[in-house]
Amino acid sequence: MMLQNWKPNTSNNKRRFRPLVGLIVAVLGLAVLMAAQQLPNRHRMEADLTQRSTQALHSAGLSDVRVTFTGRDGWLTAGSPAEAEQALDIVRPLEGVRAAEAQVPPAPAKAVLVPPSALVVMGHGTASVSGTVPSESARTALVGAAAALDAESVEDRLTVDAGVTDAALPGLADVLRAIGHRATGATVQLDGGTLTVSGAVSSEAHKNAVLTAARATGAPVVDQLAIPDVAQQLRDLPQLTFASGGDSLTTASEASLVMVSRLLKANPSTRLRIEGHTDATGSAESNLVLSRARAEAVQDFLAAQGVAVDRLSATGFGETRLKVPDTSAANRAENRRVELLTGDGRS
C-alpha cells in the first residue's frame, strides 16, 4: 500500500468541530442565563426565610437571637445554650427551612479587679500612709483621716491605680478615728482583702471600739491589738487601808477606788475579787467580821460608782493572811488592807 500521497482532510474536521463548539457555547450560555435568573430568586428566598424566622423569634421573646440564611440553611447566634435550643425549636419547623444550626459566642472576658492595699503606721506625732488605691478621692480621704489623728506630719506614699477596687477603703477612716491618739505603735493594714489592726490600745473598751469599726468595713479582720494587764494596773494603785478597828474608807482610799471604777468600766469583761484583811490586834473572830465589813465597804463604793455588782465579790480573811509581820504600828497599818484581784485569781 502506498501512503506517501496521503494528506489529512482538514476541511472535513473543521466542518465537524464547528457544530460541537456551537453546542458548548449554547449550553454555557443557557447555564449563565439560568444562574442569572435564579440569583434574584435565591436572594428573595433567603430574605423571606430570614424575615419569617426573625418574626417568629421576636414573638417568642427571643429578640436578641440573630438569624441568617444561606439558601434554605439557617444559622442562629444566641446568648446562651438554653436560648439557642429554644430558638432552634422555633426556626427548624418553619416552611422552607431545610436545616438550622446555632452558636453561642463566648462571653467577653471581664476585667479582674484586685483589692486595694493600704498601710497606715502611726507614731508619736507622725503617720505614714502607703499602698494602692483606686482614685485620688480615696487617696485624699485616707491621708486626711491619718492627719486628723493629731499627726504633725503625714508621709503620703500612696499610689493611684484604677485597676483596684475600693473594697473596705471607705471604712478605714472610721478605724483610724476609733484608734485615735491613745494607741501606741498602732498600724492598720489592708492587704489581699484582709484588714489587720495591731498596736497597744488603752483598754478593752478601746479595743472593742477599734474592732467594731474594723468589722464594719466588711473585710475579714485579724486582731493583733494588745491591752494593758488589768491585774498589773490594780497592783500599781495605792493600797487601800483603813483606820484601826474600823471599816470606813479613808480619803486616799476613796480616790484610789475612783480610779479602780474607771479601770473596770474601761475593761467590762474583768471581774473583781475584793479580799479584806486585818492586823492581829483583837480576837480572830472579830477580825474576821471586820475584814468582811471592809471588803463590803469597797464593794459598795464601787457599785455606787456604777460598776455592776455581779462583777464584784467580797470576802474577808481576818488576820489569817498577814502581809508583813505584825510587829510594829507601821506593819499593822499595812496589814489592815483590802486587796483587789481579777477574776482569774491574779492580783
Rank of each mutant, 00 (worst) to 15 (best):
S137R: 08
T342A: 03
T320N: 15
T194Y: 08
N9C: 09
Q233R: 14
V114W: 10
R292I: 02
S291V: 03
A84V: 01
G163I: 09
A151T: 10
V67A: 00
L113D: 10
V91I: 14
A31R: 09
T187L: 00
F317Q: 08
D247G: 07
D326F: 12
Q239A: 12
L88C: 11
E46I: 02
I90D: 10
L149Y: 03
S261M: 05
N267I: 01
K207S: 14
A82S: 12
M45L: 15
T196H: 03
T217V: 03
S283G: 13
L341R: 10
A168F: 04
A284N: 09
S328Y: 11
A35E: 07
L23I: 09
T270R: 01
L257W: 00
T10V: 14
T54I: 03
L249S: 05
A148C: 02
T50I: 03
A213M: 05
W75R: 13
P108I: 09
R346I: 08
D48V: 10
T10K: 14
L23Q: 09
A102F: 07
Q224M: 06
L234E: 04
M2P: 12
A78L: 02
A35M: 09
E155I: 04
S313V: 11
A118H: 00
I179F: 04
E46M: 14
L158D: 03
L234T: 03
V97K: 07
L158V: 04
A107I: 01
A295I: 03
V154G: 05
P19L: 10
E152Q: 14
R336L: 08
A255Y: 00
P8M: 14
I227L: 04
N5E: 10
L28G: 14
Q37V: 10
A297M: 04
K323G: 09
G218S: 06
G180A: 08
L33A: 15
L312W: 09
V97Q: 05
S347P: 13
E46K: 00
H277F: 15
L149N: 02
L119T: 14
V298G: 01
F301M: 02
L62E: 05
V160C: 08
